[in-house]
Design a protein around this nucleic acid. Sequence first.
DNA 1: CGTTCGATTTGCT
DNA 2: GCAAATCGAACGC
Length: 248
Amino acid sequence: MPLKPNPAPRDFYETDPVTLAKRLIGARLVRTLEDGTCLAGTIVETEAYLGVEDKAAHSVGGRRTARTEAMFARAGTSYVFMTYGMHHCFNVVCGGVDVPVAVLVRALEPVEGEEEMFVRRGPAARKATDLCSGPAKLCQALAIDRRLNGVDLVGDPGVCIELGGQVGDGVLRGVGRIAESELANTPRIGVDYAQEWAAAPLRWFLRKSQHVSGSRAEETRPLPVAKVMDSIGRAVVSGAGAMGERTP
DNA sequence: CGTTCGATTTGCT
DNA sequence: GCAAATCGAACGC
């Protein structure tokens, strides 16, 4: 029997997407189904989407539509979208209200409900590293779809993020606290259309993990807008009032 | 191993 | 009408 989930608090999310993308590695994404089934994995790969100026972000130019609305919500909200007509991707919204920035969760190492994940993923998943090694794979494995778009990860019973150190967590095979030196920092995957933003170093993954997706190549180009992080930081501060490094 | 291509629906031009 | 923050099958070497 899984323990009751222990959601990360609001202030975990009240930061910029680069900070949150790194902070999420080693945390657990926990999905609780209606029947009580728990499906969970340790996050091993993330990407930051920097909002208005980021040509790879759905919220580029401040584009605010039915689809992107959740990106404008408060930190700790989910943003789940459908792409290619059949796949879902799960994001964690951060920043402040009306600051449309988020982190895409790209890969997990399964820690609970692996058998159920194999059933949900179907015959293409032949081994554990096939279950959640991609943003759409992990959504299929954890039964995440657009019904979970815009929900509050701090208060919704269906999905949350758990930090390490949960009492009684005997199944954690994951990684606990992560040093930045254990992370690789690479271009984002599948955003070649984003011109000068395509090569920006906005993807992170746990080097030692066998559960990551896509290329491990680390050649990047600098952020095309030098002050974009400053502008996000100011917006977070003025919008949410809680920003900065967390030192647990 | 590698590359290519189709699936299938939505969101927005 | 077109391209998409993807995946997996099919094929070539």
